[in-house]
């Protein structure tokens, strides 16, 4: 099973997306803020990370920078998720080191496609 780390502070959205991904056959682990996201990424070595950007304590951009600067985690693809839906967010996310970007509300098929693309690219 593919292990996915979902970093999301909103309780309902965390619950909803983790369950939907589980239904699609993923092994989902969750973190509620940037710092615990970093900790979990290091300890559990997920294959892909779905990172909300507006997180408490350490936000998604900062967490991404940390993960991409760390040799133990820099290989893990990160998809930024944001509800801001501002055109500048995409550039910012990519600049911070994210491998892809999607907006919330999540279009599940689109998100799954992006995840699949990254996972395939990584394994090849």
């Amino acid at each position: 099973m593919t292990k996915v780390l979902l970093v999301e502070d909103n309780e309902m959205n965390r619950d909803m997306l983790s369950r939907r991904l589980t239904r699609k056959g993923f092994d989902v682990i969750v973190a509620i803020d940037g710092q615990s996201g970093i900790d979990l990424a290091k300890s559990d070595q997920p294959e892909v990370i779905l990172m909300d950007m507006s997180l408490p304590v350490i936000d998604g951009w900062e967490a991404t920078r940390v993960l991409k600067a760390d040799t133990s985690t820099k290989h893990i693809p990160i998809i930024a998720l944001t509800a801001h839906a501002m055109s500048s967010d995409r550039d910012k996310a990519l600049a911070a080191g994210c491998d892809d970007y999607d907006t919330k509300p999540v279009e599940l098929p689109r998100l799954l496609e992006k995840m699949q693309t990254l996972l395939t690219a990584e394994s090849s």
Binding site: N10, M12, N13, M16, L17, R20, S54, T82, A83, H84, A85, M86, T103, K104, P105, V106, L108
Partner: peptide, 13 residues
């Protein structure tokens, strides 16, 4: 936008 879309994300999901 974030504050309005966040609950919509849950509703949609």
């Amino acid at each position: 936008r974030h504050d309005l879309r966040t609950p919509l994300n849950a509703v949609k999901g």
